[in-house]
């Protein structure tokens, strides 16, 4: 923070185990209705360093609309899902369009994903990329900044039947790539 003015941020603390009535009393996992043209379903599970499911996480997605715009009137681009006893979450949404990146290099279509849970003192931040965008993914500046191919691959969802599968491993073998801002 050296050389910058402005107040210091309020520190993060864990969401704890008791957030459900306050944060998930309304179902916000459908960003569009399942019969919306182009609706896609995203499914995944959150697991810990022992490979056990995390049944008390909250997952948020923040994404652009199909044209690559954030926060439009018709499409908020925000969704929330809890996790069940198997750590599973799901969203119904549309595939986002490409969004602008640094120095005019477009970013491949992606959704920002935040995970909150008991035992996470601060949310972890990751990105979901799409498996049918090989060319755009190869040119994506954020993916390209990850040298470790295995770590990079954790960000690309897999197609399983009619859904996209995106698992989040918090720790250990195959840990998902998590981000922080410079």
């Amino acid at each position: 923070m050296s050389g910058e003015t402005g107040p210091e941020p309020t520190p993060s603390q864990t969401i704890g185990p008791f957030f459900h009535d306050a944060l998930l009393e309304r179902d916000l996992s459908e960003l569009v209705s399942p019969d919306h043209p182009g609706a896609i379903r995203i499914e995944g599970a959150v697991c810990d360093g022992a490979g056990d499911p995390v049944p008390d996480a909250m997952v948020e997605v923040w994404q652009a609309d199909a044209a690559g715009s954030y926060g439009s009137e018709e499409f908020s681009g925000f969704g929330r899902s809890g996790t069940d006893d198997e750590g599973r979450f799901s969203f119904t949404t549309v595939k986002p369009g490409p969004v602008p990146g640094p120095e005019g290099i477009p970013q491949a279509p992606h959704a920002n994903v935040l995970i909150f849970a008991r035992g996470l003192l601060r949310q972890v931040v990751t990105r979901l990329y799409f498996p049918d965008e090989e060319e755009a993914n190869a040119a994506d500046p954020v993916l390209a900044s990850i040298e470790d191919a295995e770590l990079r691959e954790t960000l690309v969802a897999r197609r399983v039947g009619d859904a996209l599968r995106f698992d989040v491993r918090l720790q250990g073998e195959g840990q998902t790539a998590f981000f922080e801002f410079e």
Partner: peptide
């Protein structure tokens, strides 16, 4: 068992912010 241990990937400051009221 829940803390990530791999180094975090740095998102450059030049990356446009995801804006919007967006909480629906």
């Amino acid at each position: 068992l829940r803390a990530p241990k791999e180094p975090l990937v740095i998102l450059p400051r030049s990356l446009p912010d995801v804006t919007g009221p967006a909480h629906g």
